[in-house]
């Protein structure tokens, strides 16, 4: 009897840990063809994918229906030549204004997991389902067992600059986990230190864990990830070891959630290009 229970617990543990691993293994990113540009209304093309190896197109296309591009004047920029392939999505934008553009896809809100009377597990919203917080009461049964409700936000973004870098696109929305740079993300050079601030719902995200991985991981035996944690001001620092393109992922979690949620989580992903000195 006891050993059976133990086995079940071990099995549950294995399943739980493998699920976490899967979630960590798949990296969603939007990768620009150039980040620093000059000249007359140039174009930038983007690959958007979910991959195992950093910037290898090896797993699934990122859904780009929710991708928004904001120009230095705060106006929306049209995505051109959009295409969703098996392993990646692509789109182009034209830079008509001088300054820094933000390319992002963000989602979030209430997330629930529970079990019904038969012990069957449920989650809301289901994978790929569109849902708003107002639907919560309708979607989650009153008698749900082992109910876990979180307020979860996810943001994937990158930046490109025509001419001199500008700051206008860094104004936070104060929802979810966001990055406000101290060092401009389109002014990064190998060997130099850069500083970024993470905000959770507009306040410094203390103790967020940040993982930074250089592209080309397919050609290395190790990820060689840089792991840092944000300080009391929500800041983290990194000294770029090499020129290249980097995948930056930050995760934050605390209990300061509004009812019915008991947990607040945020994931922030960015792609930065670091140039050689």
């Amino acid at each position: 009897m006891k050993s059976k229970l133990l086995l079940k617990l071990i099995a549950a543990g294995v399943i739980a840990s493998s699920m976490t691993m899967q979630a960590q293994a798949h990296k969603a990113w939007i990768l620009p063809s150039s980040t620093v540009l000059s000249g007359d209304e140039p174009y930038v093309t983007f690959d958007a994918a979910v991959s195992n190896s950093i910037f290898s197109i090896d797993h699934a296309a990122l859904n780009i229906e929710g991708v928004e591009v904001v120009d230095p004047k705060g106006n929306a920029v049209e995505l051109e030549n959009t295409s969703k392939g098996k392993y990646r999505s692509t789109f182009d934008i034209q830079l008509k204004e001088q300054g820094t553009y933000k390319v992002e896809t963000a989602s979030g809100g209430l997330r629930a997991r529970w079990e019904d009377e038969d012990g069957k597990r449920h989650r809301w919203p289901r994978r790929g389902q569109n849902a708003t917080d107002a639907d919560f009461a309708k979607a989650v049964p009153k008698d749900a067992k082992k109910l876990q409700v979180s307020q979860s936000y996810r943001r994937v973004e990158t930046f490109v600059t025509l001419g001199a870098p500008t700051e206008s696109v860094f104004k936070p929305t104060n929802q979810g986990l966001e990055m406000v740079p101290v060092t401009h993300p389109n002014d990064l050079f190998s060997g130099e230190e850069a500083t970024f601030t993470l905000l959770i719902d507009g306040k410094p995200a203390k103790g967020a864990s940040v993982e930074i991985i250089q592209g080309g991981s397919r050609y290395r035996d190790q990820q060689n990830e840089i792991k840092v944690t944000t300080n009391d001001k929500g800041e983290f620092n990194v000294t770029w070891p090499d020129a290249g393109r980097y995948f930056v992922e930050a995760s934050y979690e605390d209990a300061q959630a509004k009812a019915p949620a008991t947990k607040r989580t945020g994931t922030y992903v960015a792609v930065f290009e670091v140039l050689p000195m």
Binding site: V36, L37, S38, G39, D40, P42, G163, A164, P165, D187, F189, L275, P276, M277
Partner: peptide, 22 residues
């Protein structure tokens, strides 16, 4: 023509950063 030569100025990377871009 069409100022196409400006497109590659950013490749003078150190200069671009030190005023070229402004």
């Amino acid at each position: 023509k069409n100022n196409e030569g400006l497109e590659w100025l950013k490749d003078l990377r150190q200069w671009w950063r030190r005023g070229g871009r402004s």
